[in-house]
């Protein structure tokens, strides 16, 4: 009797809970889960015009792993990620620690560092494009003051990826910094006071108090930055033109996906590329989840 009553009540509670999360779950199903599944399905088809498609099995995948363009794009994606993630996250941590200290005008500085996040990527890319311009750009003008020759920041295969990485770091810095700042403020002041009494140096305090206690936030930031770097698209789209020689050495997997889906209209092959990217992201994120035991401290 008692048990039955309890069950009934539990169902009542659970029903309410499910009702509450229903809008989010429905949104997820329609906007995220369904497209993911249909993308995976599309990757096994050869698509015709306007939604017509025929099943081809793993044809797209066998073609993909033999396609030097895909291999190059995978390598480019990794190069970009390796360039952005370590420097970007460490810089964000560095600035977060600085701005967490009691300095004058810290609100102003926090705003300045966060500004790139508020600006639209398209506007950001257009400004950087001009800074990088070989003939009229500010960067080359500054170089010319020191007598250095003009550098084709975006037009030579040698520098283009480097230039994109700089923009990538610059634009994610503020967001990561704010997340880390929130993490830093959670750390109780008493730990630092105790350390002061023991006479610990600032560097010791950073490595033995700050770093372990901010590690959950740092982990979160790391995972997010990895994923967003692996999905880089907008800066290439805006800053590297179709005729640009450097295109081959900077185009990422998502850019290649765009090219096949929206320029060549080969949706099947494009889906295979993006599913391949999903697999890469899944593997890297799973690895990070596994490794976190070694360095992330939850209370």
């Amino acid at each position: 009797m008692k048990l039955q009553k309890m069950k009934k009540r539990r169902w009542g509670d659970l029903g309410w809970a499910y009702l509450m999360i229903a809008p989010t779950i429905l949104g997820l199903l329609v906007l995220n889960i369904y497209p993911v599944i249909s993308t995976i399905y599309l990757s096994f088809t050869k698509t015709g015009d306007f939604g017509a498609s025929s099943f081809t099995g793993i044809g797209n995948y066998t073609k993909m792993f033999k396609d030097p363009e895909v291999l190059q794009a995978t390598w480019n994606t990794f190069r970009y990620t390796i360039g952005v993630v370590p420097v970007g996250v460490l810089l964000a941590l560095f600035f977060a620690v600085l701005l967490n200290a009691n300095i004058k005008g810290k609100t102003l500085f926090r705003t300045i560092y966060f500004l790139p996040v508020v600006s639209t990527p398209v506007a950001v890319a257009m400004v950087w494009r001009w800074l990088y311009n070989t003939e009229f750009g500010l960067l080359n003008y500054l170089l010319s003051l020191f007598g250095a020759g003009p550098v084709g920041w975006l037009t030579t295969s040698r520098y283009a990826m480097f230039s994109l990485i700089v923009v990538g770091i610059w634009s994610t810095l503020g967001y990561n910094m704010v997340l880390l700042l929130a993490g830093l403020q959670e750390i109780p002041k008493t730990f630092y006071e105790a350390a002061d009494i023991d006479g610990a140096s600032p560097i010791r305090k950073f490595f033995f108090i700050t770093l372990p206690l901010v590690s959950p936030t740092l982990f979160f930031v790391l995972v997010l930055t990895f994923i967003s770097s692996l999905q880089m698209f907008d800066f290439i789209y805006m800053m590297v033109d179709r005729g640009n020689v450097a295109m081959g050495s900077v185009q990422t997997l998502v850019f290649l996906f765009y090219k096949y889906a929206f320029q060549i209209y080969d949706r099947g092959y494009a889906s295979a590329i993006v599913v391949f990217l999903l697999a890469i992201i899944l593997a890297i994120t799973a690895l990070q989840m596994h490794l976190q035991k070694k360095w992330v401290h939850y209370d």
Partner: peptide
């Protein structure tokens, strides 16, 4: 869930 959320960025252009 985290992955599907992020993949949604690329996938939504494809079908919806």
């Amino acid at each position: 869930l985290a992955l599907t959320l992020t993949l949604g960025i690329t996938a939504c252009g494809n079908s919806s």
